[in-house]
C-alpha cells in the first residue's frame, strides 16, 4: 500500500505543470512579489514601530494612524492635496474636452493641432519641470519680465506661499492635457456622425450639441479621464520634487511627497506605511465611485 502511494506520488511529480500555470507564471510571480506582498507588508508595517532600516520593532496598534490624524503637518498636507486636486482635475478635463471637440473636425490643419495638444504626453515630469522653472525663475524667467513690463512687482512663483501651489497646479494641468486629450479624442472618433445630423435638423448650437450629444456619448472616456486625473493628482511627486521640495513653508507638501520624505529621508517607515494605506483608501474610494457612476450614468453606444 505504502509503496503504491509512493509510486503515485512519483507519477504526480513527473506530470508537467498545467499549461495555464506556465503561461501565467511570469505575471503572477511579479504580481505576488511586487504588488501583493508589498501591499500586505505595508498594511502590517502601518501597525508597527520600526527601526531606521525598516525592521518591525513593536506593535503599536492604530497609533501611527492616530498620530497622523492629529499631526498638523499631515492634515495640512492632506488639505493641500485636496486643494491641488480641485485646482487641477476639473480644468484639465474641461480644457482637454474643449480642445478635443474643436479639433475633431476634418478641417485642414487639424492634424497639426492634434499632435500639439497630445505632445505633453511625451514630456517627462523632470523635463516639464525644467521647462517651467525657466519661465518661473524670479529674475531670469519670462513670467516676471512680463509682469514687470506691465509695471508689476516680480512674483515668487515658486517661493511665495500664496503662489507656489497654484504654479505647480498650472504645470500639472499643462502636463496632463496631453493624455486626457488623447483619450477624449479617441472617444470622439467613435461617435457616429448620424447622431449629429439629427441635432442639425433641430438646429441646436455648439453648446447644445456638446451637452446633448457629445458629452453623453463619450461619457465612458470622460469618466476614465476624470478618474485617472484624480488618481494622478493624489499621486503627484515628481513636480514637487523638481520644483519646490514641498516648500515654501510646506505649502506644496503633497501627500506622496510627504510619504516619500518620511520613508526615505526620516526613515519613519511605520508612519509612511500608514500614509500609504490612507492614500490607497482614498484612491480605492475614487475608483469605486467611478464604477458606480459609470454604471448608473453611462450611455453606451
Amino acid at each position: 500500500m505504502a509503496r503504491k502511494n509512493k509510486k503515485e506520488a512519483e507519477e504526480k511529480q513527473k506530470k508537467p505543470l498545467p499549461l495555464w500555470i506556465i503561461y501565467l507564471l511570469p505575471s503572477m510571480l511579479i504580481f505576488t512579489l511586487f504588488v501583493i506582498y508589498p501591499f500586505v507588508k505595508t498594511i502590517v508595517t502601518s501597525f508597527f514601530a520600526t527601526s531606521n532600516t525598516g525592521a518591525l520593532t513593536q506593535m503599536v496598534g492604530l497609533s501611527n494612524y492616530i498620530s497622523l490624524f492629529t499631526s498638523e503637518t499631515y492634515l495640512h498636507s492632506l488639505g493641500t492635496t485636496f486643494l491641488y486636486t480641485i485646482l487641477t482635475v476639473p480644468l484639465t478635463v474641461v480644457i482637454s474636452l474643449l480642445l478635443a471637440v474643436l479639433s475633431s473636425s476634418n478641417l485642414p490643419g487639424m492634424g497639426v493641432f492634434r499632435t500639439i495638444f497630445s505632445s505633453t504626453m511625451g514630456i517627462s515630469v523632470a523635463a516639464g519641470s525644467v521647462f517651467w522653472n525657466l519661465l518661473f525663475h524670479p529674475t531670469a524667467g519670462l513670467l516676471n519680465r512680463v509682469v514687470q513690463w506691465f509695471g508689476g512687482e516680480p512674483i515668487g512663483w515658486l517661493t511665495d506661499t500664496n503662489f507656489a501651489v497654484y504654479s505647480i497646479a498650472a504645470v500639472s494641468i499643462w502636463m496632463n492635457i496631453g493624455f486626457s486629450y488623447l483619450v477624449l479624442m479617441g472617444g470622439l472618433k467613435n461617435i457616429d456622425d448620424s447622431h449629429y445630423e439629427s441635432v442639425e435638423i433641430v438646429g441646436g448650437g455648439f453648446f447644445y450639441r456638446l451637452r446633448k450629444v457629445t458629452i453623453p456619448l463619450i461619457s465612458p472616456s470622460l469618466f476614465f479621464v476624470v478618474t485617472i486625473s484624480l488618481i494622478n493628482a493624489f499621486q503627484s511627486f515628481g513636480l514637487i520634487d523638481m520644483l519646490t521640495g514641498g516648500g515654501p513653508n510646506n505649502s506644496t507638501n503633497l501627500m506622496v511627497y510627504k510619504l516619500y520624505n518620511d520613508a526615505f529621508v526620516n526613515f519613519r517607515f511605520g508612519s509612511a506605511s500608514a500614509q500609504g494605506i490612507v492614500l490607497f483608501i482614498l484612491i480605492f474610494l475614487i475608483s469605486r465611485l467611478q464604477t458606480k457612476l459609470t454604471e448608473r450614468l453611462v450611455t453606451y453606444q
Binding site: S118, G122, I123, A127, L182, G186, N190, P220
Partner: peptide, 28 residues
C-alpha cells in the same frame, strides 16, 4: 531638458494615432 525630451516627443509625433486608438479601447 530638450535632450531628455527629444526621444519621447518623436515617439508621440509618430505614434499619437496608434496610442489614441489603444487608449480608447482601455477606456471603453
Amino acid at each position: 531638458a530638450m535632450i531628455t525630451s527629444l526621444p519621447t516627443l518623436l515617439l508621440i509625433f509618430f505614434g499619437q494615432k496608434r496610442l489614441q486608438e489603444g487608449m480608447t479601447k482601455g477606456a471603453l
